[in-house]
Amino acid sequence: MWKDSYSIGVDLIDEQHKELFHRVWEFARVIRSSENWEDRLEQVKETMDFMKDYVITHFNDEEEYQEEINYPDIEIHKQAHAKFREGINQYVELFEKEGLTEEKIQEFGGKLMTWLIVHVGKMDQLIGEFVRSQGGQNNES
């Protein structure tokens, strides 16, 4: 799921993005598997919980980094993160109310993958461009 073109050239963020894509890929694999749903349910729950937390942690870290570098579009970016979180929370609430069904969790997984690719492929690239424009050290440790 991860592609090198998604790199923004900031190690901390790229590493987290890779992890995030890996987790979403893993999640997609579990929810799309043809094995019995009941048998997968525990794993689905675990992956879901982990990912939910990881997305929040990552967004916080990324926003902190943007503050550090005085990223000018931080407010727009925070709004995009808020919208992303809201999208996740709507499903979390639905699952709490109605339980996890294979149909709904697959629907969630498809959206999550799409949101992630659009966000990282577009919005987050702008952070990398800003760092480069400031003469920042991309991809150097």
Partner: peptide
């Protein structure tokens, strides 16, 4: 292309992703 997975049918995961691309 998006998922890097083998996809042979349009299940809920795939149809939801396609719908979301349209939505975006």
């Amino acid at each position: 292309i998006m998922s890097g997975m083998d996809i042979n049918i349009i299940d809920n995961f795939a149809s939801s992703a396609l719908g979301e691309i349209g939505n975006i």
